[in-house]
């Protein structure tokens, strides 16, 4: 942080500085943002190739394909959450900088939601239409994916923090996180399925929103505790 000697940085400006830095880093390392989207597009292309690409079948499997692919794509991006900051010591500075670590972690989670989750949400109409999802269902699909990727990012941050100090990150991270985010997958895919069949999305969207609020409340605390454990 840009504190002069003896001058304290306010809490909100610390969070804003960190968020701005993360966004700037993401813009400079664009691959980090683009690769999950490319992965998402490629995985969803595999399904019509592997199955019989008739419209009725595609429409039937579209919610599952979209949600599982989005889940895996954001899972791949999770390891970058704290890794580079851990390697170069920035994370230690964040821990000792005097600001509440959980708030800094929360600001990073929100930025990651923006730079990893948002591109997936923006790419989803393309995939949805390619899988013959009716156009009327797309806005609701995007909304549910927006909420769902948020849950994945927040819960995933706990896993990313826990596996920082362990020898093997990637596979272990998915092992820890996948069972925890299964509810998001269930609610999200189910409400998408309902919308595709011309019914209202129902409680799924609200439950996703509730999970988002719950995870935004607790995940920063757990992730901050995990970071402290890995650094002590």
């Amino acid at each position: 942080m840009k504190a002069q000697s003896g001058q304290t940085v306010s809490f909100s400006s610390a969070c804003a500085t960190l968020a701005l830095r993360d966004v700037r880093l993401a813009v400079r390392r664009l691959g980090q943002v683009v690769q999950p989207v490319v992965f998402f597009l490629m995985v969803t292309t595999l399904f019509p190739l592997a199955l019989n690409p008739q419209p009725s079948l595609m429409r039937e499997i579209a919610p599952g394909v979209l949600w599982v692919a989005a889940l895996l794509a954001s899972m791949l991006a999770l390891d970058s959450f704290f890794r580079s900051d851990f390697d170069d010591g920035t994370l230690e500075q964040l821990v000792i900088c005097g600001q509440p670590l959980s708030a800094l972690v929360a600001s990073r989670m929100l930025v990651h939601w923006l730079i990893i989750g948002m591109p997936l949400v923006l790419a989803s109409p393309l995939v949805a239409l390619a899988l013959y999802v009716p156009l009327a269902a797309v806005p609701s699909l995007m909304l549910s994916l927006l909420l769902g990727t948020g849950v994945l990012m927040f819960v995933g941050a706990i896993g990313a923090a826990l596996t920082l100090a362990s020898r093997r990150g990637g596979v272990l991270l998915s092992l820890l996180i996948l069972p925890l985010v299964m509810p998001a997958l269930i609610f999200g895919a189910r409400s998408t399925d309902l919308v595709i069949h011309g019914e209202p999305a129902g409680g799924g969207i609200w439950l996703l929103a509730a999970m988002l609020v719950l995870s935004l409340t607790f995940a920063p605390l757990a992730a901050a505790a995990a970071i402290r454990i890995c650094l002590e």
Partner: peptide
């Protein structure tokens, strides 16, 4: 997942505390 996390640390104290966070989240 809990057991995998526990075995992935060399340091016992760290394994204890990290897996404890996971158990509580779970």
């Amino acid at each position: 997942g809990y057991m995998a996390l526990r075995t992935s640390f060399d340091d016992r104290t760290r394994a204890d505390r990290a897996s404890a966070v996971l158990a509580i989240v779970g």
